[in-house]
Nucleic acid binder design. Structure first.
Ligand SMILES: [Mg+2]
Length: 304
DNA sequence: GCTCGAATAAACAATT
DNA sequence: TAATTGTTTATTCGAG
């Protein structure tokens, strides 16, 4: 998709605009916004993962049919956020989730850089605020709360946040109301015109939520695409290794099943337009991966 | 090697 | 006055 910073509405994703958020146009008519409430600290709730029809094509539950299946086979999930914000921003009917649901500070992710651009971090912060508007200071706080990385990150990230707010057309500055004692600066909102872009960008993040992690459920095509691109060699090796190990353990059926399901999964994904879109620029990795695996499978079957 | 988007740094003005 | 906020320009970096 197009750039987040400076993106034009024409370039935005075709996400059907179901937004019910008060549009900036309305806000501007009002002239000002009510004072932003303190950074959202609603109760943390777990969302139902609610599989869509699309998941049928992307579901990798079969990978968990055997508990020892993945032991020799890494998906390279280092530094992944424990929970993706995607699933609690998506859909306006969904109430905001609690502050601690994004990253587990005890995990390695606390010290690794979050896999989100500043635009997306800001977007998430604003979307989780009660009024969908935050002063810059509370944007800092939200980011700090969810991503402890920034507590020890090199100074400058706040500068980057302000830079992004200012430069990025997705974010609009709105004057505070004159009622109470105002804080410094303005409130920042997401321009609804650009919200689909941000939502799309968030969906395209190749990092799955805990609800859809390899341990617990289906994967998004974006994530799978990313994983396959990043780990195709390891994946291939892992698959072959598992197949052979299971074969040697006299579990030939499982070994073959893994192979066939893997191919089936790839074919389904290939048929899916999403994966075509994702790979039309560089289809080679998928073709090569598929070819390699078919060869490996044939050799494996010959060996048996 | 080129382009583009994002990150980063920094200068500077305005505001509180 | 100092700190914060907001704007702008320049540079670097990585992916495609
Ligand atoms: Mg802006």
């Amino acid at each position: 998709m197009g750039p987040i910073i400076g993106m034009t509405p024409e370039k935005r994703a075709e996400t059907p605009g179901a937004e019910k958020v008060a549009g900036l146009s309305q806000i501007y008519k009002m002239g000002s916004l009510p004072e932003a409430v303190d950074a959202a600290k609603p109760k943390a709730t777990l969302m139902d993962s609610g599989e869509s029809a699309d998941d049928e094509l992307t579901n990798l539950n079969w990978l968990h049919e055997s508990t020892n299946l993945l032991t020799n086979f890494s998906f390279g999930s280092e530094g992944l956020p424990v929970v993706s914000p995607l699933y609690d921003i998506e859909g306006d009917d969904v109430p905001s989730l609690g502050p601690s649901c994004y990253q587990n500070p005890e995990k390695k992710s606390a010290t690794s850089k979050p896999p989100y651009s500043f635009s997306l971090l800001i977007y998430m912060a604003i979307e989780h605020s009660p009024n969908k508007c935050l002063p810059v200071k509370e944007i800092y706080s939200w980011i700090l709360d969810r991503f402890p990385y920034f507590a020890t990150a090199p100074t400058g990230w706040k500068n980057s946040v302000r830079h992004n707010l200012s430069l990025n057309k997705c974010f609009q500055k709105v004057e505070r109301s004159h009622g109470k004692v105002n804080g410094k600066g303005s409130l920042w909102c997401v321009d609804p015109e650009y919200k689909p872009n941000l939502m799309q960008a968030l969906k395209k993040q190749p990092f799955p939520s805990a609800l859809t992690s390899p341990e617990s459920g289906s994967l998004s095509p974006h994530y799978l695409s990313s994983v396959l691109k990043q780990n195709q060699v390891q994946t291939l090796k892992g698959m072959c290794k598992i197949s052979i190990l299971n074969h040697k353990n006299s579990d030939k059926k499982l070994g073959l099943k893994i192979g066939f399901l893997f191919i089936k999964q790839l074919c389904l994904l290939w048929k899916n337009w999403k994966i075509k879109t994702l790979t039309k620029k560089k289809p080679k990795p998928f073709i090569l991966l598929l070819t390699f695996y078919i060869i490996a499978l044939v050799l494996f079957m010959l060996y048996t």
